[in-house]
């Protein structure tokens, strides 16, 4: 299952939070059950847009005329290097801009978090006629700039150093595949610009404790040498945190949950070797302290082959 479009990009689906998006909430590419071949380096740009008008204030669904539509635009650079055929190193850095169509709050933009991910495929085997592979991913992300955190829903990120582990299984029979994964996120305390804040009680500190999060991701579709097309279900849960009170602003340590469905594709341009396009669209069907976002993303990637041998060997992996 290693193949040339093993663009496993970006680890952290984290600050996808309220409006604050990361590359992953668009691209989700680290959840691909695909690996870069040894000594290949894949890099590219992603563009993403996400917007919502309705949101869940705790469990109450509402709109807010003083925000109108909150939209987020993202441009990210990503890369994936094949240390070996079953061990990849990935990075990503997004630039994000968030704004509200109504009200007076100023838009926020800037470079968000660097994410470094290790993706390892310890098991690759066949079960009858099907291929089966197991992946383990670990990632760490950290803010690259001192962006404003305590300004939800327009902050560009939540400001945590975040560590993630993900276990992922992939099953492919013929051209049909199913990938399922589960991840756990641990987040560092965040320093905000004020010395006291109220959650469900007063806190006299500028430090905010961030609850851990889980992610469950399920994708299924058709995969070939041309690329793939897939349907996606994604569930993000915060373990703890509190609900926004009525007509209050969101806060970093809210319990932010979202269930999203969507589809994605990848297309390999046969004419230009190593060039591919990816895209996906996601819609939030349920949430808590979360905007009901519709998001789309698109990206172009190119593979540079640093291996000593000829660079067309990768081609063969594609359709295994």
């Amino acid at each position: 299952m290693k193949n040339i479009f093993g663009l496993a990009l970006k680890g952290i689906a984290m600050s996808f939070a309220f409006a604050a998006m990361t590359i992953d909430s668009y691209a989700q590419t680290d959840m691909d059950a695909l690996m870069m071949a040894k000594n290949n380096f894949c890099t590219g740009l992603m563009y993403g847009n996400s917007s919502w008008k309705n949101y869940w204030e705790g469990t109450l669904k509402r709109d807010n005329l003083n925000l109108g539509t909150v939209s987020s635009n993202m441009i990210g650079i990503m890369g994936n290097y094949g240390v070996s055929d079953n061990l990849n190193l990935l990075f990503s850095v997004p630039y994000i801009s968030n704004k509200a169509s109504a009200g007076t709050l100023i838009e926020r933009q800037g470079i968000q978090d660097l994410t470094l991910t290790v993706k390892w495929m310890p098991i690759e085997t066949t079960i009858g006629k099907a291929d089966f592979a197991l992946y383990a991913l670990g990632s760490y992300s950290t803010p690259l700039t001192n962006y404003v955190k305590d300004y939800l829903p327009l902050s560009i990120g939540l400001g945590s150093n975040t560590a993630m582990v993900r276990l992922m299984a992939d099953y492919q029979l013929g051209n049909f595949f199913t990938t399922a994964s589960a991840a756990f996120f641990s987040r560092s305390n965040v320093t905000i610009d004020r010395t006291a804040y109220y959650t469900t009680r007063m806190h006299y500190t500028n430090q905010v404790e961030m609850p851990t999060m889980n992610n469950f991701n399920f994708r299924t579709g058709y995969r070939s040498g041309k690329g793939y097309a897939e349907a996606i279900v994604d569930i993000m849960q915060t373990n703890g945190g509190f609900d926004m009170t009525r007509n209050n602003m969101p806060f970093l340590s809210n319990q932010m949950n979202a269930s999203r469905v969507g589809f994605g594709f990848k297309y390999n341009f046969g004419k230009v070797e190593g060039l591919s396009a990816v895209g996906n669209a996601m819609y939030t069907i349920a949430g808590r302290n979360m905007g009901q976002a519709t998001s789309i993303s698109a990206g172009m990637f190119y593979i540079l082959d640093f291996s000593k041998s000829s660079n067309n060997q990768n081609e063969s992996d594609e359709n295994k």
Partner: peptide
Amino acid sequence: LSIYIFPLLVGCQQTIEEKNK
């Protein structure tokens, strides 16, 4: 391995001192 290494990796759940306490 993940379960044991993970908290070390993060090293992030520092306790927060609240000055009124």
